[in-house]
């Protein structure tokens, strides 16, 4: 257990930039050679972000997190997600607690009188009773009346609270229903996105486990020239480039020629049938000589169909700007025997 904790602490310190140069070198050598360490690092990274979002890091860790860890834009996006998710979860927890703490509605079982000694009480009143005892009895009756009155008011108050809680509950239910209705339209679309994500994961697994064979055409290269780029503002003639992917291809390399622009960084979205994003890359830089962008995609992600390759210029600040798009038609060649 202790060695597991040490290992976990080592990864945390790596992510927070708190390893010595020797430790760094040793860690990274192992890391590059070991896929399981890569997966573990991703898990620890996510947990670190969650911990920061919920204020669970030590002061030293917080400082290192802000100063070192958050330099990456991808990590800042992950932190935005963790923060939103934590806020949502805390709100959900409070909502849950309210429903758990709803007062019990059945108050009828409260017993105010004990009648077991009623006969004795009758005999007591029928006999000769001294005056002081009568006064005590009157005082007791008055006290009893007061107690009954207080209990009655308390009961009414509780009932009012129950009614208010019911009304709040009904209102919350209505809000939830309305929200569910609003999301229903996008639900199908988002499910499709999830399926796509699962498909991508299985494709990656398949790539990792596929046995060697005697296949050629493993890598397909395709160049999309500037004449194929349809601009976002001034338009242009739509030309569709056909990409024939051999059945046995594993990687497709797209070389995109873009017009010279002030952007230093580009984002690429590959959309199938104009809707689904099947691949994305951000932070690509055009090579200075030819203003070309290179993109490598596992071939299994490219099913036959029509695609658009969206090229967005990413300014240092603010939203990315659509520069233009290429139109691509993907065909799959049959396997040759």
């Amino acid at each position: 257990m202790s060695s597991q904790n040490d290992h976990h602490a080592l990864i945390v310190n790596y992510l927070l930039g708190r390893l010595s140069e020797t430790e760094l070198e040793s860690f990274e050598r192992n890391y590059l050679a070991d896929e399981s360490l890569f997966e573990e690092l991703q898990e620890v990274e996510d947990e670190l972000i969650d911990d920061f979002a919920s204020d669970a890091l030590t002061i030293d860790q917080k400082l290192a997190f802000e100063k070192y860890f958050l330099r990456s834009s991808e990590r800042r996006e992950k932190l935005a997600f963790a923060t939103a998710m934590t806020e949502r979860a805390v709100a959900w927890q409070k909502g849950t607690l309210v429903s758990i703490e709803t007062p019990a509605r059945d108050l009828s079982s409260v017993e105010l009188f004990d009648n077991s000694n009623s006969k004795q009480h009758l005999m007591f009143w029928q006999g000769s009773v001294p005056a002081w005892r009568q006064w005590v009895a009157v005082a007791a009756a008055v006290l009893l009346a007061v107690v009954i009155g207080v209990l009655w008011f308390r009961n009414r108050e509780l009932q009012r609270q129950v009614i208010t809680t019911d009304a709040n509950y009904a209102r919350l239910r209505q809000e939830v229903d309305a929200q569910s209705k609003a999301t229903a339209e996008t639900k199908a679309e988002l499910s499709a996105e999830q399926q796509q994500t699962q498909m991508l994961e299985s494709q990656v697994e398949q790539l990792q486990t596929s046995p060697p064979d005697k296949i050629h055409d493993t890598i397909v290269n395709i160049v999309l020239g500037i004449d194929y780029l349809v601009g976002a503002t001034r338009g242009g003639e739509k030309k569709v480039k056909t990409l024939a992917v051999p059945a046995n291809a594993r990687l497709v390399r797209l070389t995109l020629n873009v017009a010279a622009s002030s952007f230093e960084s580009f984002n690429i979205l590959l959309r199938r049938d104009g809707e689904r994003v099947v691949w994305r890359r951000s932070g690509l830089k055009a090579k200075p000589a030819g203003r070309t962008l290179n993109l490598t995609i596992p071939a299994e992600n490219l099913l036959p169909g029509d695609y658009q390759v969206l090229v967005l210029g990413a300014p240092p600040e603010g939203d990315a700007e659509l520069i233009g798009r290429y139109f691509l038609k993907v065909e799959r060649k049959r396997a040759t025997k």
């Binding site: 790539l207 990792q208 060697p212 493993t218 990687l251």
Partner: peptide
């Protein structure tokens, strides 16, 4: 080549 392509994808990610 198949193994190489797999290695490339995995190593690039890491």
């Amino acid at each position: 080549r198949d193994r190489a392509a797999d290695d490339y994808v995995r190593l690039h990610r890491r």
